[in-house]
Amino acid sequence: MASQRREWAEDEEFDDPNALPQNQVISNPDGTKTTITYRLSDSGKKIKTTRKIKISVVKERVNPRVAERREWAKFGREQGHPPGPDMSTTTVGENILFKPSLQWKAVEKEEEATGALKTQLKDKKVSCRICQGDHFTARCPFKDTLAPVGEAPPDESRPDSPDLGAGGGATGGSYVPPHLRNKGKDAGAGSSSFNAGRERDDLATLRVTNLSEFAEEQDLRDMFERFGRVTRVFLAKDRDTGRAKGFAFVSYQDRLDAQRACEKMDGFGYGHLILKVEFAKRSQ
């Protein structure tokens, strides 16, 4: 994980302990699926959710028009896909207790208070997955040399999907635009392949540094969109102050657009500073 995260920046600051690991989907021999998702709890703790999912077929009586539509072939982006929900677009969320009541506020509070999970987690302490020390894994001095306990060393052959979680996680509980995250607090429940389904071409990602701390994401988007379709803008922000940390990543759909943007925008004056724009390096 550590090496993946670092591909977004050589910048120490970016090494956010709140970065969430990649979600996983495992197909079990018995036909079921196991999904592992990560999210940040309300208190900023990382929660790993493991779900076993049974895929079943239910029969339903419906009117003939509905039955007919059920047989429609998929089209557009779904063209050629087999019937059945696709994990990349359709996932099951965590259970919500919803019972209308005039005393809903009181009920809600009670449930919060007695939430078994919460108490269960209350006494847990931070424990490094690599050396079992009492620090975050990301802070582990051995993170670059050792694999996490009970985990295989990073698999080089695995599709190297960029760890967007770092971006999403960096801002913790605050709002993260959809294109910037793959595991939000609760949507994280099953967003595993949200990005996996759409491989990002990292070669089209620019690293923008020397940004003013007052930089806004929308401004960046506006500036960089002039050169082509921007698929993602990530502006690193301080968790506490909400101010920019001085660097950002801008991903283009097309590397050529990125190339042009890099040439034009490097040395561009933004705010009171001169931007430095270069291609993001992939760290190995």
Binding site: K45, T49, T50, V58, V62, A67, F136
Partner: peptide
């Protein structure tokens, strides 16, 4: 009228049968 000609269809549905949450570092 619709329900007179009702048909049975099959749906593929995912169902969570086990769920475990744990806190990690």
């Amino acid at each position: 009228k619709d329900m007179e000609g009702a048909t049975v269809i099959e749906e593929i549905v995912e169902e969570v049968i086990e769920e475990k949450e744990e806190e990690i570092a």
